[in-house]
Design a protein around this nucleic acid. Structure first.
Lengths: 121, 121
DNA sequence: CCGTTAGTTCCGAAGTTCCGAACTATGGGT
DNA sequence: ACCCATAGTTCGGAACTTCGGAACTAACGG
């Protein structure tokens, strides 16, 4: 098993961050890692919304987030702990993550409201 | 030729914006449209940096930006004028575009200084 | 040393992107 | 009215990416 690769913060590219967070599942995973005190085992995120994510896809999502420089992953025995790199990324690209996370947060609200109120569609 | 489709601002999704701007060429095109007084003919963006973009790819880039809700395109005779929808998008997702554009702007500087000669992705 | 749990790798199917070539639409010149 | 030039779009195939099931590896507990 290869050691987990993490880019140095100065090698982190905006397009990689946008690409990583352009997937709603990954954005949700990243948001969850931040909320949950910046630590989370991969398997704690077995589903996003009502959708179950297969292990292999999950593994890949974490890899994309890691290689984009958004999270730091450490093996602890049999499991992997993921920390958000928010502080570093914020220092390098101020306002970027806040803007993205807020955008998703303010989008989910209206969407859920609309979907729930229009039961007969 | 089909009329150009523009999503209503409330139908604009964060993932579409991130996906559109996750491509550095598109981000550069969008930044240019905003700088240039919010109006620009497609062909005025024939190249990004030192890279020439084929017409068909350009057409597709503008389509992606338009359908993400980032620009508004109007046919004026033989050409198409593109306006940024910054104000609308800013109202819906405050800070999102500023964060992204700043991230690219602050990335190009270091990149040009250090790695423009040997960057490979 | 075997079983279990957590994650990774492999690989084929499905989807997306890129770009050259052919096409359409508009306006100007004669 | 016609043709030509210019500006964009559409088509289609090759190259690339993503998804997910099955097989694999790694660490720990009995």
């Amino acid at each position: 098993m290869r050691p987990l690769f993490h880019p140095a913060i100065e090698d982190v590219r905006p397009e990689a961050i946008l690409h990583a967070l352009a997937d709603p599942s990954r954005a949700a995973i990243f948001a969850k890692i931040m909320q949950a005190g910046c630590v989370e085992a991969c398997s704690a995120v077995s589903a996003v919304g009502d959708r179950v994510i297969p292990k292999s896809s999950l593994s890949n999502h974490f890899k994309v987030l890691r290689e984009a420089g958004l999270i730091r992953s450490e093996r602890h025995g049999v499991e992997v702990r993921n920390h958000s790199r928010w502080i570093e990324v914020e220092a390098r690209f101020p306002g970027l993550l806040a803007g993205i996370i807020n955008a998703y947060a303010s989008d989910v609200g209206p969407d859920l409201r609309a979907a729930e109120t229009s039961t007969s569609r």
